[in-house]
Write a protein that binds this DNA or RNA. Sequence first.
DNA 1: CATCGGCATTGATGAACATCAAGAGCCGCT
DNA 2: AGCGGCTCTTGATGTTCATCAATGCCGATG
Lengths: 231, 231
Amino acid sequence: MVPGNMTHDDLTTTLGKIPLFASLDDDELGVISHATHHHRLLRGEMLFQKGDPALGFYYLVEGQVKLALLAPDGQEKVIQLIEPGMTFGEAVMFIERPFPAYAEALRASQLLFIPRTPLIEALNGNPGFALKLLAGLSTRLHGMVNEIEALSTRNATQRVIGFLVADRGHDDPDTLALPASKALIASQLNLTPETFSRVLHDLQQRQLIEVDGRTIRLLDRDTLLGQEEPG
Amino acid sequence: MVPGNMTHDDLTTTLGKIPLFASLDDDELGVISHATHHHRLLRGEMLFQKGDPALGFYYLVEGQVKLALLAPDGQEKVIQLIEPGMTFGEAVMFIERPFPAYAEALRASQLLFIPRTPLIEALNGNPGFALKLLAGLSTRLHGMVNEIEALSTRNATQRVIGFLVADRGHDDPDTLALPASKALIASQLNLTPETFSRVLHDLQQRQLIEVDGRTIRLLDRDTLLGQEEPG
DNA sequence: CATCGGCATTGATGAACATCAAGAGCCGCT
DNA sequence: AGCGGCTCTTGATGTTCATCAATGCCGATG
């Protein structure tokens, strides 16, 4: 289970840093880390397909992964972009259902796969862990409701603004670098690249943002927020 | 805590029938039922507003409730229709966030409000309960992913078909009664009533369904499923 | 340095669905 | 039976965004 260049202790340490696992003691962590697998993916490789059985969840150590679906017409719709330190697949693990989307590496990546069995064991006798898991899932669910709200009540410009002003916890809240190609971000916002481009152009003309390649500077956060107009 | 026409034992019995609570013993159930409140709503009354703190979850005993949002332009978008026997609000309870949507009674309704505190106590020392909760939330999350998929990759007709063929666990799977007005169903599918009407009309012309008021008969389930064309 | 290929922009057109505006059917009510 | 208020339908028009098709840009590579 321990990958070539990572000792078992390294692995346990890494797992211990996952917020989800904060309430586990060393023994519990040890059991889990013994069951954990290490994965390496090259850019473009698939981690799992939509429909694959979900027997555990993933932690992204390094690289970048996208979760996406194919539309009936073959178009790809990106659900979420996974960055290092994030986990995914926790939800599906607890029900007997397959993954609802597929996962593909956008660049060379390293992941940990944590199988469900030792997790469920850790659940027994560690209510704190259960609560953490519940809170984690709830947060996801909350995010999903927001996503549905965005998709069903906001137009293209509002969705782009929502994305731009979203707090990324960076040092400078008014400058952001797009985490991927514009086409991919567009797909996440359920837009075509063309429309995304036009919206950015328009916002720039209106002096609300400044675009330089993948770097965007928010010039007038207040007016932007005004355009968003929450329900 | 016990409503006028419902004894404490009645209440405990009712709670015991909630699948979520199946793994609780009588003591645990007793604690929870002591904390439970009974609510009555008239048609049109609000149960909670979007933004209200979520201090517990609800179980619908009788009546009908809708969860909905307001779009920036004041339009209402129905998220979910709650029928007797269903619970809602479990997810939000575990994070320190307010309700992401509001709840309004569509007809005179009776509900139980189960506060979070005794639940969290039951979680301690009852891992089975934790697992049930996790499974419940996961199922919701799964449903949300499907909803996002529907909203972002399917057109009006495909969404309507998806709604029509959805298994409602009835005796006759090919006949269904719309659970609410067409306008409300349309909103759930993120359509205007006009578009919904036109889609139904079109499907009827193509001999795929038969519409009589709120009763719809599926004449050719196979062809319908073919139109849906999953990714 | 020249060229190639992916990414991004821009313009012209089109399709899907919303909006606006009437009217039709269908109650329950007096 | 006749009225008023719903819900639902139907038609005409409008808006938003996708699609199609060039073209520009830029970094990588021989």
